[in-house]
């Protein structure tokens, strides 16, 4: 598996460059918004990637609650963390796009941006819980929180959806169908970002495995003072440094 990492990295870099070229040069300018609409090629794929990662986090958390397999827990953690990064990208590029198009940075009534913000808050609280937990079973607490967060998403969406009908809407809905060329470039960009996200998740996964190995080694160390280390060894594998 390890040998594929550099190959995949190079392929992803090429794909990202190609997607960037498509987004900036090949695709025609939007008649209404001008060139600034091209933010969509980063904004939307990032959002889709983040949602996909959060979905995987949800599924992995449920599986963890049933099966208690440590690997599934690492998958959940990794997806939440990388998902938050992509979600941050969405939240930063969103206002940058909104400013020239709508004239304001943030529209509280905008359902997509606001619900993404809530999503971001939920998963940040998930990461904070994992960080601050003193429990020996942090994974269980985190998995439960992930389930709560995922259950919250549709409710957030509907509450904002109804809330905005009371407010003046700065958003001109995504009405009208998309130019097929634009859709094609959008999908190319999404593919590129998915590959990138996969690589990041992979690295983060390996980091977490290494982290747990170090913890294990410390646990061995902590009680080895009385010369007991040879007699007992923890069952989890410890790779050579």
């Amino acid at each position: 598996m390890k040998r594929f990492f550099p190959i995949l990295s190079i392929l992803t870099a090429i794909l990202l460059a190609y997607a960037l070229y498509q987004a900036l040069v090949v695709v025609p300018t939007d008649a209404l918004q001008g060139d600034v609409y091209r933010i969509i090629y980063y904004h939307v794929p990032s959002a889709w990637t983040a949602f996909l990662l959060f979905l995987i986090n949800f599924v992995a958390s449920i599986i963890y609650l049933i099966r208690r397999s440590p690997k599934v827990d690492i998958v959940a953690l990794v997806c939440a963390e990388v998902g938050v990064v992509f979600c941050t990208v969405v939240l930063v590029t969103g206002p940058i796009w909104a400013r020239p198009v709508w004239g304001i940075w943030w529209a509280p009534g905008d359902i997509r941006l606001t619900s993404t913000l809530v999503l971001w808050l939920i998963y940040v609280s998930y990461l904070v819980l994992r960080r601050f937990s003193t429990s020996a079973q942090t994974q269980v607490l985190a998995a439960a929180l992930a389930v709560f967060g995922a259950l919250d998403v549709p409710l957030v969406y509907f509450s904002i959806w109804f809330f905005r009908t009371q407010h003046p809407q700065p958003v001109i809905g995504g009405g009208g169908s998309m130019d097929p060329r634009m859709l094609r470039v959008l999908l190319i960009n999404w593919l590129a970002f998915l590959c990138f996200a996969f690589l990041v998740c992979w690295s983060r996964y390996r980091l977490e495995v290494l982290h747990r190995e170090v913890d294990q080694a410390h646990a061995l160390e902590s009680l080895a003072g009385a010369g007991m280390a040879e007699k007992a060894s923890l069952p989890l594998s410890r790779s050579a440094p």
Binding site: S125, L129, G149, L155, V156, F163
Partner: peptide, 16 residues
């Protein structure tokens, strides 16, 4: 920290 993000729809519902 844990409660407020999850409670946003409820708070929105109560307030609105």
């Amino acid at each position: 920290l844990l409660l407020f993000p999850i409670s946003i729809p409820a708070v929105l519902g109560m307030v609105a």
